[in-house]
Design a protein around this nucleic acid. Structure first.
Lengths: 133, 133
DNA sequence: ATGCATTCAATGCACAAGCATTTAATGCGC
DNA sequence: GCGCATTAAATGCTTGTGCATTGAATGCAT
């Protein structure tokens, strides 16, 4: 076995799974209870908030948060119904849709941000360096 | 830089999410196509296969694979229907149930093992050291 | 022994996710 | 212009998951 660099891959994978599960659950609980947001909801708002004009294409977001296109479509629908984002037609390509973060969305995101960061600081092992993506 | 708390936690988290999603999807696809198993299915069989007498309690497995107790219960039901595990009553505590891997289950697990390991070797960045769990 | 809180697993229910399909808009070739 | 393959996003459908509840077995206290 070539374990020149790699520790047992299985251990790594299991560790990653455990870490992912723990952190995800904590986020889900706290963001849900305190701000009425799911993890993916927040992730989407987060991307939108940091994007240039507060808008992005659906597929773009899907890639960013690792969800399927259909899942994203429905997620957007939920956020839209909640008034946190809006769908704007893209005039250059009318098949496309721009998802834009609303005032309320930005506000909600800002409120949730500290919670999010706090949990990451708590649960994420600090030895974890930036992973390639 | 290392400001006491570590590299940007958000980057770490996003990296972890991406890595998790990619690997999980790859496993899901390959294990599904080639062996008719989901990732969690395999994970459970894997734990059972390596456990002392090929048996374990439900809650024990739930913890190991980071699933809720109810999810595990149904997962076991599916595996049982597929003939890969069996449920045995535990005589010391008749509330409890021992999940035991069957012949067929062990065989299926053995077949799937190389696929699993191969994907982990492919997709998992080898810099990823063992995470605490 | 009787009652009561606790624990283990199963089940009802609601919901989010993926796959496959559909609808609509593009753009390319002719 | 007219088809035709391609792409974007929405929708039908199925399935897996979590939460809350239920049912059963246990153990402890009285």
């Amino acid at each position: 076995m070539d374990d020149g660099v790699g520790v047992d891959v299985v251990s790594s994978w299991r560790g990653l799974l455990a870490c992912h599960a723990t952190t995800w659950c904590a986020l889900e609980r706290e963001l849900g209870d305190k701000h009425g947001l799911g993890v993916s909801d927040f992730e989407v708002l987060d991307r939108l908030a940091e994007s240039e004009h507060g808008k992005a294409r659906v597929q773009e977001l899907a890639d960013a948060v690792s969800l399927s296109q259909s899942a994203l479509s429905r997620l957007i629908s939920r956020l839209e119904k909640a008034g946190l984002v809006s769908r704007d037609a893209c005039q250059h390509d009318r098949r496309g849709v721009f998802v834009r973060i609303t005032e309320a969305g930005a506000e909600r995101h800002e409120q949730a941000l500290p919670t999010h960061r706090a949990i990451l600081n708590d649960r994420l092992p600090q030895g974890l360096s930036a992973l390639p993506h």
